[in-house]
């Protein structure tokens, strides 16, 4: 199997995994799920680091460094903000009985 074909197989299989994994989600979780998925594509940071390493001209390096900054913001910010949202959900279950806590 050629390399391209192997990558294509991986792509197609990942499409199905992606479809399956989120087929039933309550509306409550739509926003955190979107935000979490958003953080995951911040992994383009890996690609940005690879091209920064390859960079041979100043232009290439500058563009790659900008890409690194943007990708890191996407990844780190995404996970942190998702965690903040989900923290709220955890809090509410614990406080069901003690309503006076403020």
């Amino acid at each position: 199997m050629s390399n391209s074909l192997a990558l294509l197989s991986i792509f197609i299989l990942a499409v199905f995994v992606g479809f399956e994994v989120v087929s039933k989600v309550s509306t409550t979780l739509h926003t955190p799920l979107m935000s979490g998925a958003n953080a995951i594509h911040g992994v383009i940071l890996v690609g940005a680091i690879i091209v920064a390493d390859h960079a041979s001209t100043t232009l290439e390096l500058v563009l790659a460094i900008i890409a690194i900054v943007l990708a890191t913001i996407n990844m780190v910010g995404g996970f942190v903000v998702t965690d903040r949202m989900l923290e709220m959900f955890k809090g509410k279950k614990r406080n069901t009985d003690s309503e006076d806590k403020k």
């Binding site: 990558l7 991986i10 792509f11 990942a14 499409v15 199905f16 995994v17 992606g18 479809f19 994994v21 989120v22 087929s23 989600v25 739509h30 799920l33 979107m34 998925a37 958003n38 995951i40 594509h41 992994v43 383009i44 890996v46 690609g47």
Partner: peptide
């Protein structure tokens, strides 16, 4: 490979979402 898998997962699940 990792970028392909991660990106595709987000693309597919994002479409469903």
């Amino acid at each position: 490979t990792l970028l392909i898998v991660a990106g595709t997962l987000v693309g597919a699940s994002g479409t469903i979402l």
